[in-house]
Amino acid sequence: MEQGTVKWFNAEKGSGFIERENGDDVFVHFSAIQGDGFKSLDEGQAVTFDVEEGQRGPQAANVQKA
């Protein structure tokens, strides 16, 4: 798993970007967020995640709040 920080997340659209510790920013969709309840992330929040190849390039998967 990688570690990173939420660069921004739009709760209305359900997507945003995570700033990786090593590498380019990666797209995140709300469906990749693990946990119960409303799936959203806050700017500056620390997260851990896997990276998968999506239709438009790398994207975060199995996102967990650190």
Score class of each variant (00 low, 15 high):
Gln64Gly: 08
Gly14Phe: 01
Pro58Ile: 08
Glu12Pro: 04
Asn22Phe: 12
Gln45Asn: 07
Gln64Val: 12
Glu12Gln: 14
Phe38Arg: 06
Ala61His: 09
Gln64Phe: 10
Gln55Gly: 11
Val51Ser: 03
Thr5Trp: 15
Asp24Gln: 13
Glu2Trp: 15
Ser31Gly: 06
Asp25Tyr: 14
Ala60Gln: 01
Asp24Glu: 12
Gln64Ala: 09
Ser31Asp: 03
Gly23Asp: 09
Glu52Tyr: 13
Glu43His: 13
Glu2Asp: 08
His29Gln: 02
Ala61Gly: 06
Met1Ala: 13
Thr5Ser: 08
Ala66Arg: 09
Gly23Pro: 01
Val47Gln: 00
Gly57Gln: 03
Gly23Thr: 06
Asp50Met: 14
Glu53Ile: 15
Gln45Tyr: 04
Arg56Ile: 07
Lys39Trp: 06
Gln3His: 14
Lys65Val: 14
Arg56Ser: 10
Ala66Asp: 10
Ile33Gln: 02
Lys39Leu: 11
Val28Ser: 03
Ser31Val: 04
Asp36Tyr: 11
Gln45Arg: 02
Ser40His: 09
Ala32Asn: 07
Arg20Ala: 05
Gly37Phe: 05
Leu41Tyr: 01
Gly44Trp: 04
Phe30Ser: 06
Val6Ala: 02
Ile33Leu: 07
Gly16Arg: 00
Phe30Ile: 08
Gln45Phe: 05
Glu43Thr: 14
Gly14Lys: 00
Ala61Met: 11
Val63Trp: 00
Gln3Ala: 12
Gly54Pro: 02
Val6Tyr: 00
Trp8Tyr: 09
Gln34Trp: 10
Asp50Lys: 13
Phe17Leu: 07
Phe49Asn: 01
Thr48Tyr: 12
Glu53Trp: 15
Phe9Asn: 02
Arg56Gln: 10
Ala11Thr: 11
Asp50Cys: 13
Gln55Lys: 14
Phe9Asp: 03
Gly57Phe: 07
Gln59His: 09
Asp36Asn: 12
Thr48Gly: 04
Lys39Cys: 08
Gly57Tyr: 06
Asp50Val: 14
Glu53Thr: 11
Gly35Ser: 09
Ala32Leu: 00
Ile33Phe: 04
Glu21His: 10
Gly35Ala: 09
Asp42Pro: 07
Asp50Asn: 14
Ser40Phe: 13
Pro58Asp: 06
Phe49Gly: 03
Gly44Pro: 03
Ser40Cys: 14
Ile33Met: 03
Glu19Pro: 00
Val51Asn: 01
Gly35Gln: 10
Glu19Gly: 10
Glu2Gln: 14
Phe38Ser: 05
Val6Glu: 02
Phe27Trp: 09
Glu19Tyr: 12
Lys39Met: 07
Arg56Lys: 11
Phe27Ile: 02
Arg56Leu: 10
Asp50Phe: 14
Ser40Val: 09
Ala11Phe: 10
Phe30Gly: 03
Ala11Lys: 15
Glu43Lys: 15
Asn10Cys: 12
Ser15Met: 15
Ser31Cys: 09
Gln34Phe: 10
Glu21Lys: 12
Glu52Arg: 10
Val26Thr: 01
Thr5Val: 14
Glu53His: 12
Ala11Arg: 14
Glu2Pro: 04
Phe30Trp: 15
Ala32Thr: 04
Ala11Tyr: 11
Val6Met: 01
Ala66His: 12
Gln45Met: 11
Asp25Arg: 09
Gln64Thr: 11
Glu43Gly: 11
Ala32Gly: 08
Asp25Gly: 06
Gly57Leu: 05
Asp42Leu: 15
Pro58Asn: 06
Ala11Ser: 11
Ala66Lys: 12
Met1Gly: 12
Lys13Leu: 11
Gln3Asp: 07
Pro58Ala: 08
Phe9Trp: 15
Lys7Ser: 05
Trp8Cys: 13
Ile33Asp: 04
Gly54Arg: 07
Trp8Ser: 07
Ile33Ser: 02
Val63Gly: 00
Glu12Ala: 13
Thr48Pro: 00
Asn62Pro: 00
Ala60Ser: 02
Val47Cys: 05
Val63Thr: 04
Asn22Val: 10
Lys7His: 06
Arg56Trp: 15
Asp36Met: 10
Arg20Gln: 07
Glu21Gln: 12
Gly16Pro: 00
Val26Ile: 13
Glu12Ser: 13
Gln3Phe: 15
Glu43Met: 14
Val26Arg: 00
Asn22Ser: 10
Val51Trp: 09
Glu12Trp: 12
Ala66Phe: 12
Lys65His: 11
Gly14Met: 01
Gly54Glu: 04
Phe30Met: 05
Val28Gly: 03
Ala61Arg: 09
Gly54Trp: 05
Phe38Ala: 06
Gln45Thr: 09
Gln64Met: 11
Gly35Pro: 01
Gly35Glu: 09
Asp24Tyr: 10
Gly44Ala: 04
Gln3Ser: 13
Gly37Asn: 05
Gln59Tyr: 15
Asn10Glu: 06
Pro58Cys: 09
Glu53Met: 15
Lys65Gln: 10
Ala32Glu: 05
Ala60Ile: 02
Arg56Tyr: 15
Thr48Ala: 06
Gln55Thr: 14
Gln34Cys: 13
Glu2Tyr: 15
Trp8Val: 06
Val63Glu: 02
Gln64Lys: 11
Phe9Arg: 00
Ser31Leu: 07
Asp36Glu: 12
Gly44Asn: 05
Gln3Gly: 08
Asp24Trp: 09
Val63Met: 00
Ala66Cys: 14
Gln59Val: 11
Lys7Trp: 01
Glu19Trp: 13
Asp25Ile: 12
Ile18Gln: 04
Gly23Gln: 08
Trp8Met: 05
Arg20Trp: 08
Arg20Tyr: 07
Val47Glu: 03
Glu52Val: 15
Phe9Leu: 03
Ala46Asp: 08
Phe49Trp: 01
Phe17Gly: 01
Gln45Ser: 08
Ser40Pro: 03
Phe49Ser: 01
Lys13Cys: 14
Gly4Ala: 03
Gln3Val: 14
Phe27Gly: 01
Lys13Glu: 08
Pro58Thr: 09
Ile33Gly: 02
Gln55Ile: 14
Gly16Glu: 02
Glu21Cys: 14
Asp36Ile: 11
Asn62Leu: 04
Gly14Cys: 07
Lys65Gly: 10
Val51Cys: 07
Asn62Ile: 02
Glu12Val: 12
Ala32Ser: 09
Ile33Arg: 00
Glu43Gln: 15
Met1Tyr: 09
Ala46Ser: 11
Asp24Ser: 14
Ser15Lys: 10
Glu2Ala: 09
Glu12Tyr: 13
Asp42Asn: 14
Gly35Leu: 08
Lys7Val: 05
Asn62Asp: 02
Met1Gln: 14
Thr48Gln: 10
Phe17His: 02
Leu41Val: 04
Phe27Glu: 04
Ser15Thr: 14
Lys13Thr: 12
Phe38Lys: 06
Lys13Ser: 10
Phe27Ser: 04
Asp50Glu: 13
Asp42Glu: 14
Asn22His: 11
Asn10Leu: 04
Arg56Thr: 08
Gly35Asn: 07
Arg56His: 13
Pro58His: 07
Gln55Cys: 15
Glu2Met: 13
Val47Pro: 01
Val47Gly: 00
Phe30Cys: 08
Asp42Gly: 10
Lys13Gln: 10
Phe27Asp: 02
Gln34Asn: 11
Thr5Ala: 05
Val47Asp: 02
Gln59Pro: 04
Val51Ala: 00
Glu53Val: 14
Pro58Trp: 09
Phe30Val: 08
Asp36Val: 11
Asp25Ser: 09
Asn62Trp: 05
Arg56Asn: 12
Glu19Gln: 14
Ser31Lys: 07
Ile18Lys: 02
Gly54Asn: 07
Val26Cys: 06
